[in-house]
């Protein structure tokens, strides 16, 4: 019985951590740049296909990270320049544009890799016994890597010179320009970094889930729920939002079933949109 509780606890933690990781990139583009990037999930998908590509070439799994960053960067840079930048002040148009982009990216990947499911082998096989619960070793690694990545980025954002300049740009764009911050370039780099982060989470998730061109849809919706609940004001909102959404879904799923867990999250998000549209941690 103890082992069962530990197993459910690990499942819930995994769900929360993965959700936070995938949402972080979306939080960057939405929270910092005001662009609701509906193609965010497609960059997770591109990351996952990077892992598949690397495996099919016979390269080691770790090579997928630079490949994913290169791919997301190479796509993200022109996308920011020609599609997103003209629409920074027009959020609704940006939503439409990124929706179109998501279709385009799916078609593109479909053209190269086909529409079918692909499998990426787990680089670390087997299970480890944690307090009486057998848990996949690779998922432990993913959890630790995700926590390390999130912590690094949050620390960097709060402490580095560039992180402070990004905060300054978001806080007061006119003043940021006046003090000499190259706002256009910084916004582009920030946007591309958010996309690369999505790609990295795709690489981490690829060995666990079905890799196919439409997989991105699975992620963008729940990430959006996280930001609805957590709010865009602070990095803390992301952590709390992931905890609430991932935790609530996993807990209700564990106690009742998946359908109830999914419905619960949907209702929770709608309640937030209705009663508390700025989320738990408002700006």
């Amino acid at each position: 019985m103890d082992g069962l509780l530990v197993a459910h606890g690990l499942n819930i933690s995994f769900e929360i951590v993965v959700l936070a990781l995938v949402s972080l990139g979306l939080a960057i583009t939405l929270g910092l740049l005001g662009v609701l990037n509906l193609a965010h999930g497609e960059f997770v998908m591109i990351g996952a296909f990077s892992a598949f590509f690397v495996q099919s070439q016979g390269w080691p799994y770790l090579a997928a990270f630079p490949v994913a960053i290169l791919a997301c960067g190479a796509i993200g840079w022109p996308v920011e320049k020609f599609l997103i930048r003209p629409l920074y002040a027009r959020p609704f148009d940006a939503i439409l544009a990124t929706w179109g982009l998501s279709l385009l990216l799916r078609e593109m990947v479909e053209f190269f890799f086909g529409r079918g499911f692909n499998s990426v082998a787990q680089p670390i096989k087997g299970t480890v016994n944690i307090l009486g619960a057998d848990y996949p070793a690779f998922q432990i690694v993913v959890m630790l890597a995700a926590i390390a990545l999130i912590a690094t980025i949050v620390f960097w954002f709060l402490r580095s010179v560039t992180g402070r300049r990004i905060q300054a740009m978001v806080d007061n764009p006119d003043l940021a320009k006046a003090v000499g911050i190259p706002v256009d370039a910084l916004a582009r780099n920030t946007f591309v970094a958010g996309l690369c982060l999505a790609g990295i989470s795709g690489v981490l998730l690829a060995p666990i889930v079905a890799v196919h061109p439409s997989m991105g849809i699975d992620y963008v919706l729940k990430s959006f729920f996280v930001l609805v609940v957590g709010g865009l004001g602070h990095i803390l909102g992301l952590v709390i939002g992931s905890g609430v959404i991932g935790g609530a879904e996993a807990t209700v799923s564990a106690i009742i079933d998946r359908t109830s867990g999914y419905s619960f999250v949907l209702i929770l998000s709608l309640l937030f949109l209705w009663r508390r549209p700025n989320g738990l941690v408002a700006r």
Binding site: R164, Q167, A168, V170, D171, N172, D174, L175, A176, K177, A178, V179, G180, I181, P182, V183, D184
Partner: peptide, 27 residues
């Protein structure tokens, strides 16, 4: 652009929202 003028030696203090409210005084 303003940031280019800054690089050429123009420093500007704005009337409205003259500081970054979300950063510390030191930052």
């Amino acid at each position: 652009a303003p940031e280019k003028r800054h690089d050429l030696g123009v420093n500007t203090g704005l009337q409205e929202r003259p500081v970054f409210d979300g950063l510390s005084v030191k930052d």
